[in-house]
Design a protein around this nucleic acid. Structure first.
Lengths: 149, 149
DNA sequence: AAGAAAAAGGATATAAATGTCCTTTATTGA
DNA sequence: TCAATAAAGGACATTTATATCCTTTTTCTT
């Protein structure tokens, strides 16, 4: 039921940049990290991978930063999950048994399969654009929610 | 969708001991670790916690080892999950946002809530006894499944 | 009572995830 | 061309999970 922190940072970063798609400027790591209350340098690494995967684009230098491309809004959550969690995230056995699969299922395998498939459906069908909300100010606030500092 | 290795080791250990409930002997860590192909000392720590939680019983000394008690077979998976993953496992936000909840949901919150509840149902209702299988030899073999050594 | 066996407890080691820092490269604007 | 800016890249630090080892305590058997 859990993802790594990297996943949360990646998706929130993507959503933040996507939300500002109509602004004439590009978005810097410094701005993203500050607005989302996320560790600056760690986020940098993750965004690099996001760009490498083609989910966002970026340019260096003055006026540089991150911006959306033709793939961004149509990217399914699943793509981001596989990027940050690894390609076997949905294949690993809940009981840490290496040879568990549908033909040789562990005791838990069949019990959770149905819901696993359901989640896979959700993650495969939900696009970045589906997660954006109209009220930008509100949405940014919700993305940045943290404990009172 | 994933649990720690500790959870897998714990549940498999519990299942192994439960499966042998009719044997007149108690089950040692050495036997469990060997049969499940699991690291001996790490499993020892986990089983200690399992006993402390009352899910299994144990005695020290000669002829000592682990054995089931009145709670074992009726223990829901959820109890074992909370033991190994911590009490907030099902509360943590998928996007690493600290103040995410149903009244202040993150963008993913509502999308996965239904399936999360479904999994909670499964984990709350599935008991250790539900996971045992009649053919002991087969079941032990399946619990111990590993890569060819 | 003595010795052996087995879990409990605690110290340490390794690996992976997370986080920080510094240097390099690309881009822009003057 | 030069200085400033911002991502990319890589080295290092910290934390957490996983794994190993050694000692202590309990229990049984003789």
């Amino acid at each position: 039921m859990t993802f790594s922190k990297s996943f949360g940072y990646a998706l929130r970063g993507i959503l933040y940049v996507s939300l500002l798609k109509d602004e004439p400027r590009k978005i810097s790591i410094d701005e993203i990290a500050e607005k989302l209350s996320v560790p600056r340098h760690f986020l940098g690494k993750i965004m690099k991978a996001v760009v490498k995967a083609g989910i966002l684009s970026s340019t260096r230098g003055l006026q540089g930063g991150f911006f959306i491309n033709e793939k961004t809004l149509g990217t399914p959550l699943l793509t981001i999950i596989l990027l940050t969690e690894g390609n076997n995230y949905f294949n690993t056995c809940l009981l840490s048994m290496r040879k568990c699969n549908s033909s040789n299922p562990c005791p838990l395998h069949n019990k959770v399969e149905e819901h696993k498939d359901g989640l896979l459906q959700i993650y495969g069908q939900t696009l970045v654009s589906d997660l954006l909300q109209d009220d930008k100010a509100d949405f940014i606030k919700s993305l940045a929610t943290v404990e009172a500092a």
